[in-house]
Design a binder for these strands. Structure first.
Length: 515
RNA sequence: CGCGGAGUAGAGCAGUCCGGUAGCUCGUCGGGCUCAUAACCCGAAGGUCACAGGUUCAAAUCCUGUCUCCGCAACCA
């Protein structure tokens, strides 16, 4: 039985279409999932959407349609975007899925019966215009800035989760398991927050669009119970216990840094109360800023991943986000940077390396793979072995940027090797055997590179693979396939041209670039 | 004294946990090669690692203090 690897992402809120931030998280999760598949593990990758809640209720009302109809429009946009970006998940969960709703109600009942959920009065200031509770700091001169009227004191009876009961165990777990909260910078923050973190309300009276509280139809279950439980219901908790037992606990729960506290305090509380083991890791990644600014609708700088993928290819976006942003920290997207990175690494270094190699093979060997000459290729072979090992170490720690740096270091080495060996000179001198060895080495290194980069840029890797023309499918290549010598002499390559064309300045620079 | 992030070459960043010749990409300048997507290879210039103290044989890295910038209301990962 291969080792299992269960990875989840946050489920996105479907009150608006996906943007580049949503895409970043899914792409990262996908790359990690694909890497582990390559290692030969039994991977389950869960993602999905949160379709409940007041904002969706409102957004639907604004369009004069039902919430069901509304999410029925939005959720498919997430699905199609992930398809376009090559995000290959095993399950896409929607919080409106029947088995999920049932399991959530069961969990709620159990927590209530155990006393882990209790009833309490929630008091606050309610603005009828906004239909929501306001904080003191939201108000201007004691009035709602949107409606100009003072909100009314209001109290409602809610169901509350008893986090206090589990704080000690959560703290102990975080302290005993350094990998539980990652990156490390978030750990101390969580330990700090834990001290003062209050019991939270897990139901809403005023919201209609949600899972009803069992036995109390006047309220719906709030996001902390509803949405968080997707991570277990998505692999069968409450519906397919065998599957759940197989994959849980999750190896990696990838989320945005802002919701780390909910995933490291509320979520463990729910799990502990339900006697479910805690996940091995919660990883809070950073934001994608747009240039210097935070992305926001009000600033009007929201970037749509679809548009970029359509114009420049999904892998360009995947590569840029994974290579440019230190995983765990904030990063920024600018078109100029995007273009530079993608041109340099995908077109100039990787794509061109294969293209020049296949060109020489065609010219000198009619496109057939020559025989390895160990004495000639030893240098590259060593480099391949070293790269594979280093990349594995980085990926184990989710150092995606360093992983890509390492892989591109090998690509650089390949280009350098070509220059140093000067195959064109060998051809002129008639040193056919050595020439063959050089080209074998280069192509073999590129074969390994293709497999290694495939989790990150799957579509481009596929194109490279087709031209190298290894008979077996790229998707079937596992760790063992990275051993030197996989390329069989005599096999015919299939040169069809550049795999990734450079992004040219045709539009923006049309008037200014010409001399 | 609210919380948290950040300040490293012209630009964008890594390195900081586990002190020891300051690294990457792009850009600039010079050279090489000609198989290739005006690509590839080599070399050079360019940094008081925000500032001030301290610890140390040695500090971008550890400690203390100061300054500056950015998030933490909403849309929102």
């Amino acid at each position: 039985m291969p080792r299992t690897f269960y990875i989840t992402t946050a489920i996105d809120y479907t009150n608006a279409p996906p943007h580049i931030g949503h895409a970043y998280e899914k792409i990262a999760a996908d790359a990690i999932a694909r890497w582990h598949r390559m290692l030969g593990e039994d991977v389950f990758f869960l993602t999905g959407v949160d379709e409940h809640g007041v904002k969706i209720e409102k957004a639907a009302a604004a369009e004069g349609i039902s919430p069901q109809e509304f999410v029925g429009r939005i959720s498919p946009q997430f699905i199609s975007t992930w398809a376009k970006l090559g995000v290959k998940y095993d399950r896409f969960i929607r919080t409106t899925d029947d088995h999920h709703e049932k399991a959530v109600q069961q969990a709620f009942s159990r927590l209530l019966a155990q006393g882990d959920i209790y009833k309490a009065k929630y008091e606050g200031l309610y603005c009828a215009g906004c239909e929501e509770f306001k904080n003191e700091r939201d108000l201007v001169d004691g009035k709602c800035p949107q409606h100009g009227a003072p909100p009314q004191p209001f109290s409602e009876e809610n169901y509350v989760l008893a986090i206090a009961k589990y704080k000690d165990r959560i703290r102990a777990h975080i302290e005993a398991n350094p990998d539980f909260v990652q990156p490390e910078s978030r750990r101390n923050e969580i330990l700090n927050l834990l001290e003062t973190f209050p019991d939270v309300s897990v139901s809403r009276q005023k919201v209609k669009w949600g899972i009803p509280v069992p036995g109390d139809e006047s309220q719906v279950i709030y996001v902390w119970i509803d949405a968080l439980l997707n991570y277990v219901t998505g692999i069968g908790w409450g519906s397919d216990e065998a599957m759940f037992a197989k994959y849980w606990p999750a190896n990696c729960q990838l989320i945005g840094k802002d919701i780390t506290k909910f995933h490291c305090i509320i979520w463990p509380t729910v799990l502990l109360a339900l006697d479910i083991p805690l996940p091995r890791q919660v990883y809070g990644h950073g934001w994608v800023n747009i240039g210097e600014q935070k992305m926001s609708k009000s600033l009007g700088n929201v970037i749509e991943p679809n548009a970029i993928a359509d114009q420049f290819g999904a892998d360009a976006l995947r590569y840029y986000l994974l290579r440019e942003i230190t995983f765990g920290k904030d990063g920024s997207y600018t078109f100029d940077n995007f273009k530079l990175r993608v041109n340099a690494d995908l077109a100039n270094n990787l794509g061109n390396a294969l293209n020049r190699t296949l060109g020489m093979l065609e010219k000198n060997f009619q496109g057939a793979v020559p025989a390895d000459v160990p004495g000639v290729t030893a240098e590259l072979r060593d480099r391949v072995v070293e790269t594979r090992a280093t990349a594995a170490v980085h990926m184990e720690k989710l150092e995606i940027q360093e992983t890509l740096e390492t892989l591109w270091g090998l690509i650089d080495a390949v280009n350098k090797y070509i220059d140093t060996q000067a195959p064109w000179a060998l051809a002129k001198a008639g040193e056919t055997e050595k020439l063959g060895g050089v080209l074998y080495g280069v192509l073999e290194a590129l074969r390994v590179v293709t497999i290694l980069v495939s989790p990150f840029i799957p579509h481009l890797a596929e194109k490279l693979w087709e031209q190298i023309a290894v008979p077996e499918a790229l998707a079937d290549q596992r760790w063992e396939a990275l051993e030197w010598g996989g390329l069989v002499a005599g096999q015919q390559t299939n040169k069809t041209g550049p795999v990734y064309p450079r992004i040219e300045d045709e539009l923006a620079e049309a008037g200014t670039k010409k001399k």
